[in-house]
Design a protein around this nucleic acid. Structure first.
Length: 467
RNA sequence: UCCCCUGUAGCUCAGCGGUAGAGCGGGCGGCUGUUAACCGCUAGGUCGCAGGUUCGAAUCCUGCCAGGGGAGCCA
């Protein structure tokens, strides 16, 4: 019987509420492993509520004892029994079953998950079953806690959560290649004068999946002052790395009456806050990642949560790299973007903790970033962290209409589609700033997981969109 | 998109010119409290795909496909 009134394993094993002990309980879960020894069997189950499994003891006194022979890894169960202190050594408490029902079997000759460790590459092919493993259960819980912590951080500071569109007609948001969203029949494209007739498309114009909610967030910042988005974004780049996804979630705060210094402080408070949050709310899962994936993980996160970030300008960063005596594969030159190896040297070896680099050359940054008085650099910032590199990119936005228009011309952009963006500078413009944080990269950093495809439930990467 | 590495049993891998292997998992049996339980027996393979070299190819060569690592692009 699928039970209402069941107790989650997490609550059952919660030492604070051990009024459960010696009382009848109902639990559900999926079988991890079954061990039988003479007249006693041990069935280890997990329901996803915590990393810890629950051991069910079934002996001949249980009327359903004969059922145990049919239980295999992966099948689902309802158990009625009594929680007791365990006689064995591997766990403090266990449930002695008084009755047992298998809800769904899992043919052991076919069920692909075994009660031993699998490689992450193999599990990636089983995205529908991998949440049942320790690692992916832990990732799901940590990801959930961090999403909640992000909302909590902004809500406590009075930020308004806004939802920006996923489909956009702006074809140059300035952040990479876009996916086209169309209802046109690709096998029979309507044409007009030898070109695709976009007027026949759903929106009467080309439309795309958004690469960023920034421009729309700026609209609301120019009315509500402090806003943030948290939603999916899409990049059609042919990126094949452990840090890139074609579909990923991004957090983008946008703040009016704020300059780059204020934004850098917000970014630092934000990262320190969410890492502290995950350490506090997921100690069991974090201990798991620390043990199996990165022995320095908890120490690193605690260090970040408790110490100030380093700040330097791009020009200072270039000087430090030039003076480092390191032999880099790519030369260091003022005016060229920092390479991965440069960023990692700065954050991992030079400083040893997160670094905020500001004021990049205007030529290598987007048109909407505010031009400095030197005419050569813009008020951009990247937050670099060890192992991942860039985790946040942001800037103070250009609020001066004439400068913005000049920058758009220099970038070769037609300003007509941006009439509304320019209007924000025409009517009550303000100094404002915002950044974008890759959510998966942040969870990746917090868990010590090596590959971003293991951070999102159903990863989309080039040539890969199963599930 | 570029560079490098890897595709052998359900999984993890060994074998690297001469009869296809191990551990785990599965099946059967045993075991009175187990902890990825343990012990015994057992089934299981177009060696990624296509071509080539050779008396003979999992093994050497070429192409393609897939996976991984790194780079670029970025978050």
């Amino acid at each position: 019987m699928p039970t209402s009134g069941r107790t989650r394993i997490k609550d059952l094993l919660d030492v604070e509420r051990l009024d459960n002990v010696s009382n009848p309980v109902a639990v559900n879960g999926w079988v991890k492993t079954v061990r039988s020894s003479g007249g006693v069997s041990f069935v280890q189950i997990n329901d996803g509520s915590s990393l810890a499994d629950l051991q069910i003891v079934v002996d001949a006194s249980c009327p359903d004892y004969a059922l145990v022979g049919n239980l295999t890894t992966g099948c689902s169960l309802t158990v009625f029994g009594v929680l007791q202190e365990s006689l064995g050594r591997g766990q403090k408490y266990e449930v002695v079953a008084s009755s047992l029902e298998m809800l769904g079997g899992a043919d052991p000759e076919e069920y692909p998950l075994q009660k031993k460790r699998h490689t992450l590459e193999f599990l990636r092919e089983l995205a529908h079953l991998r949440p049942r493993t320790n690692t992916f259960g832990a990732v799901a819980r940590v990801r959930n806690a961090m999403a909640f912590g992000i909302h909590q951080f902004f809500q406590q500071r009075g930020f308004l959560y806004i939802q920006t569109p996923i489909i956009t007609a702006s074809d140059a948001e300035g952040a990479g290649a876009m996916f086209r969203a169309t209802t046109l029949d690709l096998d029979n494209l309507p044409t007009q004068a030898g070109h695709v007739d976009n007027d026949a498309d759903f929106f009467g114009r080309p439309a795309f999946l958004t690469v960023s909610g920034q421009l729309e967030a700026e609209i609301f910042a120019q009315a509500m002052s402090d806003v943030y988005t948290f939603g999916p974004t899409f990049r059609a780049e042919n990126s094949n790395t452990s840090r890139h996804l074609a579909e990923f979630w991004m957090v983008e705060p946008e703040v009016a009456f704020c300059d780059l210094d204020g934004l850098a402080q917000l970014a630092e408070d934000f990262l320190r806050g969410i890492f502290a949050h995950v350490l506090e709310t997921c100690p069991e899962d974090m201990a798991f990642f620390n043990r199996f994936y990165d022995k320095e993980l908890i120490a690193t996160l605690e260090d970040i949560a408790n110490s100030d970030f380093e700040r330097m300008t791009y020009t200072e960063a270039v000087r430090l790299l030039e003076e480092s005596g390191e032999s880099f594969e790519f030369p260091v030159r003022w005016g060229a973007d920092l390479q991965s190896e440069h960023e990692r040297y700065l954050t991992e070896r030079k400083v040893g903790r997160p670094v905020i680099v500001t004021d990049y050359p205007s030529a290598i940054k987007a048109f909407y970033m505010r031009l400095n008085d030197d005419g050569e650099t813009v008020r951009a910032m990247d937050v670099l962290v060890p192992r991942i590199g860039e985790i946040i990119g942001g800037s103070q936005r250009e609020e001066r209409l004439d400068v913005l228009q000049r920058r758009m011309v220099e970038a070769g952009l037609d300003d007509a589609p941006y009439w509304w963006y320019l209007d924000l500078r025409r009517y009550g413009t303000t100094p404002h700033a915002g950044f974008g944080l890759g959510f998966e990269r942040t969870v990746q950093f917090a868990t010590g997981m090596q590959n971003i495809r293991d951070i999102i439930a159903f990863p989309r990467t080039p040539r890969s969109a199963e599930f």
